[in-house]
Design a protein around this nucleic acid. Structure first.
Lengths: 211, 211, 211, 211
DNA sequence: GATGAATGAGGCTTCATTCAT
DNA sequence: CATGAATGAAGCCTCATTCAT
């Protein structure tokens, strides 16, 4: 089949080797469209504007490519989150901001959102560890905020930080999942991040001290 | 759902022709072990104790079998949940009981839990709607409890029921996911359902009126 | 698959065992519709109003059933042809009548025609001999007419009877094939047998003495 | 027709990539041996000296391969016939030459003959049109010769050209079929084309003006 | 004799991966 | 480094045939 050079192929004109990143980006797109197991290497190569074989110069095999793609996307997300948190002090505000970042990041990139909600944990189970560490890292950020809050006396001391972190993450995560599965997403009239306050209002109330 | 070859096939009175259910159960097991896309029809047939071809007397193709399996398991779960709720009145207690049922059901059947956490939403996205209706049904149960609570004045009136339902579900769901992904599960010394109170304590606090 | 009892099934009410013939008829129909190799035993059984397994009480296997079906149909055709020829004397008229019978028989039963034109020789090659003998028999009838004609001096003596027989058969046969392949057949306004004289005019001229 | 992966694949200059034609030839052989529906892709691949999967680089599926094979063979036959006819003038001689070419071509390649006699019309009915156009083309050649003859006054004006063409084709075709079905073919002591004059003698007499 | 649920061998097709250019 | 034609293992599914009822 004569491959029609995709848009990405045009970019290869510019220069030497952004190929690695192009492949990674293409992978995320394709995974979002077809899901992990229905993603074909040939399609990723096509969309990245490289030959099938080229993939194997950068990745050992399909699984590693897909894992690297998810890892990479997640990594960039964490980085942004972390630096954003440094700018505020109040634990409550930090929590709010994390929720916002989460919803903002995924709400702005539907492909990424699909991959995170439907493929990430799926893959976590069946493809070894990969971003497991990153997930742990994400939880650690949440937990440290909660701990700060407890120490500052703004969060209840009688709750498990781990459980609370899961509640927080679960609530936000579930909002995203619903957004993905529903077709209301076609309505570009509301952004996922606009739900931040509603979610935070509940979770925050659940963990705050009854001052 | 899939058609049975004839009603006679359903006679589970003796032990012979419960093939339909045996195939369904085997499917759940295999999906839990290998994931949706790595499940091979031959293995399901083998584990159900039937020939490969027999599968196709009961199901049109592999996808329909897998979807039926997930559907069926989810359906049974909903039934149990619903009947259990009828036995209590207090909305807070109802919420607690739902969380318990959720954690109890999945904590007792690891295969089922894996399928629900890693395959269900995955499939919801890539295999059409199927259990989407069931998920909606589940949320409806939660929402009606929340509504009762608001009307009874025990839950805050200033929060969105939909958002609150997602927070509740998300929190419980996340607990299960973590349980699945962690390897502590090997420790059979603690049951997932024992986390019920910790989770409920937070979410309930978040939605309760500040009496 | 719940078999919907076909029309044929109703006929089984009458009595004991016309099953054999019913199966044979069903086979011809199904072969005409799907071709030899795409004919499924289950469909033949369904259309004959019997169970799949019943086929095997009457025929050793699928191939024997199909061969028997073709054989039987051909046999009936030959019988009719033979008795019809006995009623005329003139070799030229006999030839004309054979052409007419051929075109009449197949033109009246499209299923039969399809089977004869597309499956008979196909099968002759790939399924052993079966009706080969019947074909030979058919040619023998033609040849004996030609011989009579030569002896009576109405047909040229300088031509090979075998070759002439093939020319006659080939011409008529080709007319039928064209009729099958074309879609003009939908026009029920002309009958295949109406072409008799046109064909015979040519072939007869070719074999007649130039008296 | 099937697409080649790239023009480079067509370079039959060296011996490497005539794969497309090799597959086509292998297909004809295998079809001749086993018939259309008993031809296995694996055997064709094996005989063409390529891997099973390679077939699918050149053809969309089994049916398209088989149809392309028959088409291709027929096409080459027509080409040869056409150019041969240009070399003679007399319509009677043209007809003789067509019969000769027909018998010569198939008599020289038993595999091809089997495919043409047993599979071509079979397929025409059950596999869509494909070479139907080619058949029509063949008939057009015959018809134009007959028309020339009528205009030149050497062929009777009172016969239908279409019918006459079918008689001609039918006669020649039937000779081939008989040759295929008989086992005398094992006798390589006579060539099918040696029957040309006998056949032509009859058909020509049938269409000639009785000068 | 009759049934039809069950069997399981076998074929088409896909697609990750390799390697000669 | 890059290519992409070629490979071939592996899996879904069909359907002729059997056999317990």
């Amino acid at each position: 089949m004569a491959k029609r050079p995709s848009q990405a192929a045009a970019r290869s004109a510019n220069g030497t080797s952004d190929k690695y990143q192009r492949i990674l980006d293409a992978a995320i797109e394709v995974i979002a469209e077809h899901g992990f197991f229905h993603s074909r290497v040939a399609e990723i190569a096509d969309r990245a504007g490289v030959a099938d074989g080229t993939i194997y110069l950068y990745f050992k095999n399909k699984d590693e490519l897909l894992m690297a793609a998810i890892d990479s996307a997640f990594h960039r997300f964490i980085q942004r989150a972390r630096s954003s948190l440094d700018q505020v002090q109040d634990p409550r505000e930090k929590l709010r901001r994390m929720a916002f970042l989460h919803l903002e990041a995924l709400g702005s990139n539907r492909s990424l959102a699909i991959v995170f909600q439907t493929e990430l944990r799926h893959s976590a189970k069946f493809l070894g560890q990969f971003s497991h560490n990153l997930l742990v890292e994400y939880f650690d950020v949440i937990k440290s905020v909660l701990r700060e809050g407890q120490e500052a006396g703004v969060f209840r001391a009688d709750i498990s930080i781990t459980i609370a972190a899961h509640c927080f993450f679960g609530a936000v995560d579930e909002i995203v999942t619903t957004w993905i599965l529903s077709d209301r997403d076609r309505d570009h009239d509301y952004h996922l991040s606009s739900l931040t306050d509603s979610v935070v209002a509940i979770v925050l109330k659940g963990v705050e001290t009854g001052s």
